[in-house]
Structure formats: structure tokens, C-alpha cells
């Protein structure tokens, strides 16, 4: 078993908990012996605007930003945002998208229309598109804020880590009182997606061993 190399692009809307989701993913990679970098933007950009996180993992990671056209996995917490950042995905990469629609200001005010046929447009770009109702799953747990962990659980099928590592990361990063509901949300998300065929999801393999290597 060797350490693979890849990039995960997370996109959504301020307030959806993307920063926490990427923190859990990053922590799970760290706990699996990976080097990992992630990059995000705070401040004015966060006020209800589009929010993104770049997460890169491997035996050794240099740049904190994913180069456009190279992300292995695009996790979109909102449908329109999947389309907005699709150009970050590598050819044949995986798109995991929450079916939720949150109209941006120009749509709310009637100056623009929410794009149609988003699912088809995503499928035109790559065959590997998975749409799930993360909001529904979170509401079923009576915790609307758990959308992020539902998405994280679903995403775990497409990442080269053991399930236990995400749960360890959750327990390490969250206040105790939030661990249980978030663990349930993670499992609910995992159950929402049909696992892909076993394999490595097309991640680059430089043959660097997982243990005994120097970070």
C-alpha cells in the first residue's frame, strides 16, 4: 500500500459548513500518514458569497491551491456551485453534488435565472456524477447544520482512507456534544451513495510507501 496523491475541491455557500468539512477531511488524511494542505478565504468573501476550499494530499504537498483542471473530486454543497467550479475538475474526475438549490442574489432579485439542467451539464463533462439530497438527510436527523457531515460521509467513498479515520477526526475536532449527531450524519451520507468499484479512484501513485517514509 502506498500513499496516493490527489486534490479535493469543496464548493458551496457561506454558512453551509464547508470549512469544517474540509477540516475533518484534512485531519483524516493527517491521521492516515499523509502530508496535506488546504486553502480557503475568510472575511468579506464569506458573507453569503461562494465559498471554496482547496484540499491536496500526498506523500509531500507543495502548493496549497489546486491547479484548475486537476481536481480528482469536486464536492459541491450546492448545485449551482458545482457548475461554477467544474473547470477545476480533471477530465473524468468525480463530482459529488448536493441537490440543494440556494439562489444567489441576482436570482433572488429576478435579474438572472437559476441555471437549468445542471445535472445534465455536469454529466456532459464527466461520467462520474453523484447527486444526493444532503439537506433531506440532515433534516431527517433534525439538524439542518449537519449537511456538511452528510456530504463528508458521501465523499468518503471516493477517498483512499479508512472510515475509522474520519470518525477519529470528527471526535478530535468537534466539541463532545456535537460528535454524536455529526457521526450519524457522516454515516447517513455514506449510506446515500452507492460505493464505487473498489480501486483507487484514479489518484496518482508515486509508489511512496505509507509507513516508514519521511514526511
Amino acid at each position: 500500500m502506498s500513499l496516493l496523491r490527489g486534490g479535493v475541491f469543496l464548493a458551496g455557500v457561506g454558512g453551509q459548513g464547508i470549512l469544517l468539512a474540509s477540516e475533518i477531511l484534512g485531519e483524516a488524511f493527517l491521521r492516515s500518514g499523509y502530508d496535506v494542505k488546504k486553502s480557503e478565504v475568510h472575511g468579506m468573501a464569506q458573507r453569503g458569497g461562494a465559498v471554496t476550499t482547496h484540499l491536496r494530499f500526498g506523500p509531500r504537498v507543495y502548493a496549497p491551491l489546486i491547479e484548475p483542471g486537476t481536481a480528482d473530486l469536486l464536492i459541491a454543497f450546492e448545485k449551482l456551485e458545482a457548475l461554477r467550479f467544474l473547470h477545476f475538475l480533471k477530465p473524468g474526475g468525480t463530482v459529488l453534488v448536493n441537490a440543494q438549490e440556494i439562489p444567489p442574489a441576482p436570482v433572488s432579485s429576478g435579474q438572472a435565472r437559476y441555471p437549468e439542467r445542471i445535472e445534465e451539464r455536469l454529466r456532459e463533462a464527466t461520467p462520474d456524477v453523484h447527486v444526493l439530497d444532503a439537506l433531506g438527510a440532515a433534516l431527517a436527523l433534525h439538524e439542518v447544520r449537519a449537511v456538511n457531515m452528510v456530504m463528508t460521509g458521501a465523499a468518503s467513498h471516493f477517498l483512499p482512507l479508512a472510515e475509522a479515520k474520519y470518525l477519529e477526526a470528527l471526535a478530535a475536532r468537534l466539541p463532545t456534544r456535537f460528535v454524536e449527531v455529526n457521526t450519524r450524519a457522516f454515516r447517513a451520507g455514506r449510506a446515500l451513495v452507492v460505493p464505487p468499484d473498489a480501486g483507487r479512484g484514479g489518484y496518482a501513485d508515486d509508489g511512496v510507501p505509507a509507513h516508514g517514509g519521511d514526511r
Partner: peptide
């Protein structure tokens, strides 16, 4: 510059007062 998919033409999502 390796060829790149054109960014989709979608409505912007500017920041806003809450």
C-alpha cells in the same frame, strides 16, 4: 498552458448583508 474547460457562465454569488 494546458487546455482548460471554460468556466461555466453562471450567475455570480456576490457577498451580501445578512
Amino acid at each position: 498552458a494546458p487546455p482548460l474547460r471554460e468556466p461555466a457562465d453562471v450567475p455570480p454569488r456576490p457577498p451580501n448583508l445578512c
